[in-house]
Design a protein around this nucleic acid. Structure first.
Lengths: 218, 218
DNA sequence: AACTGCCTCACTCTAAAGGGTGATTACATC
DNA sequence: GATGTAATCACCCTTTAGAGTGAGGCAGTT
């Protein structure tokens, strides 16, 4: 019997395209459900109990990584394969840390996808050579990073960074947090050092691109 | 005869899905070519002269907007329909300004897409109600902005702003553009005044949020 | 010819940012 | 009890950013 698949992606066109593709291999794969949001993916997984969830990362309400975490804790038998366009190494590491069964980029050939999906049902990991390589490099990179002193930001540093990302000056941050400007400078200095950045503007763009602050309009 | 379509998207899976979908409506649409990068899209357009180019925005080498600009100036007869996941208003405005025939989100139904594509060949614009609404709101917003003193940035100012958004210092910008640091300061001063911003960090986040620079990974 | 906007640059001055060093308190961990 | 880390702050010093003012060249428009 074919592999039962739940498709979680917020782009209807992409889902429809995938379904159309999978119809050409009905012997191997069958799309049993679709989800538009992470929240929906969790619920549908509970109801349908698919063999594999093909999960995008960027989704409204709850992103694919959060949804994956929840699914893995509640329905450990379900295999999750991330299928995303994110070239962001951080997403890859996070997904692997959660224990997903695969991480694939949308820049992938359909036949390869079918092959890898079949492997997943046999307990293999779904990952292309290039993704595996990036993962290895990432692990190596983290070891180097640990040696060279890069660590995660503290809570307070994150708060300061968010202010910076909103264009606040040190004085304004100090006032808002009711601390001395020296302390703000101190935090910012640590932030720049930890993240290996040169100035506050780079810190701001870093924060925006990592989604540490919401990209509000206007 | 069917509408001849060039598919420009860097995700192979998406392209394959779209092709599979369009095979179901062979009477109406035909994919005559695929492009993985903006540069490729330009070249393929020259060679194939499709009726419509379905163009994504995020692509390596040359993004969809740049490619659209080039195609429209070199092959004015070709209709370009942006098909993207970008909810960024800046991208929408830019595309419309360039003169594309449509702007659609990938969160779209296949049947709707087919309908809209047919409309394009009859000279209609391919745009969903919600996109049209966003466009109108954007225009209204810009009129208000114009009254309150916001003006468009000059070409040079945009270049400087892009550097700022990448975290460059005035000295670095000056060196890269081979102009004096005083000139850079002068440009930046005008930018801040035109956009009613307080400092370069705000300018950087402004640029990022408006999509003036592509949110590169890494 | 006059005007306008854009790009270029200079000079001054003040405010802000950022690097370095060191120190205290508090809290958790080992 | 020692160690470590986070958060707080101070002082000094150098570099950078930003505001103000003025000005020349150049292209396009009226």
């Amino acid at each position: 019997m074919p592999i039962r698949i739940l498709l979680a992606d917020d782009h209807r066109l992409f889902r429809q395209g995938m379904i159309s593709l999978m119809r050409t291999r009905e012997d191997l794969v069958e799309v049993v459900g679709e989800a538009e949001t992470g929240e929906e993916a969790v619920q549908m997984t509970g109801m349908l109990r698919p063999d594999v969830v093909l999960m995008d990362i960027y989704m409204p309400q709850k992103d694919g990584l959060q949804a994956a975490k929840e699914i893995l804790s509640r329905f450990p038998g379900v295999a999750i394969v991330m299928l995303t366009s994110s070239e962001h190494d951080g997403h890859l590491y996070e997904a692997v840390r959660l224990g997903v069964a695969g991480y694939l980029l949308k820049n992938l050939d359909a036949d390869e996808l079918f092959e890898l999906l079949e492997g997943v049902t046999h307990g293999e990991a779904a990952m292309t050579r290039s993704m595996a390589m990036r993962l290895l490099k990432g692990v190596a990179g983290r070891m180097v990073d640990a040696e060279s002193g890069e660590e995660a930001l503290s809570e307070r540093e994150l708060v300061v960074l968010r202010f910076v990302a909103n264009g606040a000056s040190n004085a304004e941050i100090a006032e808002n947090l009711s601390i001395s400007i020296n302390t703000v400078k101190s935090h910012l200095k640590n932030i720049l050092e930890k993240l290996q950045l040169a100035n506050r503007t780079q810190a701001a763009t870093y924060a925006l691109r990592r989604g540490l602050v919401l990209p509000r309009e206007k």
